[in-house]
């Protein structure tokens, strides 16, 4: 199956063009896969150009100092990655448990609770948790809040993905002599993986956006630029922070897409 990529100008399809990735891409997702990083790079270059040429007062200059920005990006990424790992470590096993025959009846209740967790206003969740867990560091409170916030998509997709596995394949696995655990590892999870990964990507994007609120409980992150901009009436700083968060979110979403393609089992 050959793929026709409506190639952006930066990538003219000369000759055979870029090798199709094992024929898994539709035209639309190919644009996203190649277009997003280009968009991010262009956006970031525009920001650099503005930062180098704009006349900034001393407060603006110190808020947008490169070392300060680098620290905030690093904190933001750390929050995102750790929270997402926690989400996966909790939601996937929980989803597996909730699709086993004995615990299946609990699934609607647990998904309901996870739904409520996501419906709660994230800023309220973060601040409330910070007040309750007074002994905790801001970082871990932020991780807990972000994980609660990001758990639903992964949990829901794990359950949906596992439920979507053809039951005759599960029975075939048992009939051939796989144990229950082997069927889960070798048949059910590989077949459900594309759906689970889509949930993980959604969750990543939610978490990277919400991590901007971590600054309210001294957990750092790029939200610092926005709050500094607001409290000090320096709107360029606020806008710069928002733009950088948006670029990071796009980049994280792109990483999620690449991961999805990489872990997708061959043959499905």
């Amino acid at each position: 199956m050959s793929i026709h990529i409506d190639a952006p100008i930066e990538q003219p399809a000369v000759g055979a063009g870029p090798a199709p990735r094992r024929g898994r891409l539709s035209g639309g997702s190919a644009i996203e896969l190649f277009g997003i990083p280009i968009l991010v790079v262009v956006g970031f270059l525009l920001y650099v150009w503005w930062r180098q040429t704009a006349t900034l007062d001393s407060i603006e200059a110190s808020s947008l100092d490169w070392s300060e920005v680098r620290l905030e990006v690093w904190q933001h990424l750390k929050l995102t990655v750790v929270a997402s790992l926690v989400v996966v470590a909790i939601a996937v096993p929980l989803g597996v448990l909730l699709t086993r025959p004995r615990l299946r009846f609990l699934a609607p209740a647990v998904v309901g609770v996870a739904n409520a967790g996501q419906a709660a206003p994230s800023i309220g969740l973060i601040v409330l948790l910070f007040m309750w867990l007074s002994g905790w560091s801001g970082f871990w409170v932020a991780i807990l809040a972000l994980a609660l916030y990001g758990i639903l998509p992964v949990l829901r997709n794990t359950i949906t993905g596992l439920q979507g596995v053809d039951p005759t394949l599960v029975e075939a696995g048992r009939g051939l002599g796989y144990s229950g655990g082997s069927v889960l590892l070798r048949v059910e999870l590989p077949l459900a993986l594309p759906v689970i990964m889509a949930g993980i990507r959604t969750s990543l994007v939610l978490v990277v956006g919400t991590a901007a609120l971590a600054t309210f409980i001294n957990a750092g992150g790029m939200g610092g630029m926005i709050t500094a901009g607001i409290t000090l009436y320096r709107y360029p700083v606020m806008v710069a922070g928002a733009v950088l968060i948006a670029l990071l979110a796009l980049l994280v979403e792109w990483v999620g897409r690449v991961l999805e393609l990489l872990v997708r089992p061959k043959g499905i």
Partner: peptide, 22 residues
């Protein structure tokens, strides 16, 4: 039970092959 099943061939409608395995 798993050992028993490994000594009994099992063929299902349509083959029921695992799509992610060669």
């Amino acid at each position: 039970v798993d050992e028993l099943r490994r000594t009994i061939g099992y063929v299902i409608q349509g083959g029921s092959l695992f799509p992610h395995m060669s």
